[in-house]
Computed example of a mutant assay.
Amino acid sequence: MLARANRIVRGDDYRSVVRRGRRSATAHVVVSVVRHPADDAGVVSGATRFGFIVAKTVGNAVTRNLVRRRLKAIAHGLLSDVPVGYDVVIRALPAAAQAAWPTLLEDVSRSCARGVEKAA
Rank of each mutant, 00 (worst) to 15 (best):
M1H: 15
L2F: 02
A3S: 14
A3Y: 09
N6I: 00
N6K: 06
N6F: 00
N6M: 01
R7K: 15
V9I: 08
R10A: 10
G11E: 12
D12C: 03
D12A: 12
D13G: 04
Y14Q: 10
S16C: 05
V17S: 03
V18F: 01
V18Y: 00
R20M: 06
R20P: 05
R23Y: 08
R23V: 02
S24Y: 14
A25N: 12
T26H: 06
A27D: 13
H28M: 05
V29H: 08
V33D: 05
R35I: 00
R35D: 04
R35Q: 13
H36G: 01
H36S: 11
H36Q: 12
P37M: 05
A38Q: 13
D39Q: 08
D39K: 08
D39R: 07
D40M: 04
D40E: 15
G42C: 11
G42T: 11
G42I: 04
V44H: 03
S45K: 12
S45P: 05
S45A: 13
G46K: 10
A47I: 00
T48L: 03
T48I: 04
F50L: 00
G51K: 07
G51A: 07
F52C: 00
F52I: 02
I53E: 06
A55T: 15
K56F: 04
V58H: 08
N60V: 06
A61M: 11
A61D: 12
V62N: 09
T63M: 09
R64G: 02
N65Y: 06
L66T: 10
R68L: 00
R70G: 03
L71T: 07
A73F: 01
A73E: 12
A75H: 10
H76S: 10
H76C: 01
G77V: 07
L78G: 03
L79R: 14
L79K: 09
S80P: 00
D81S: 13
D81W: 11
P83Q: 09
G85S: 04
G85I: 00
Y86H: 04
Y86E: 00
D87K: 06
D87V: 00
V88K: 03
V88T: 02
I90R: 08
L93K: 15
P94F: 13
P94E: 13
A96M: 02
A96N: 03
A97E: 09
A97K: 12
Q98R: 14
A99R: 07
A99W: 09
A99Y: 11
A100H: 15
A100E: 15
P102F: 06
P102V: 04
L104V: 01
S109W: 12
S109Y: 13
R110C: 06
R110A: 11
R110E: 10
C112S: 12
A113L: 10
R114H: 13
G115C: 07
V116W: 02
E117D: 15
E117H: 15
K118W: 14
K118L: 14
A120K: 01
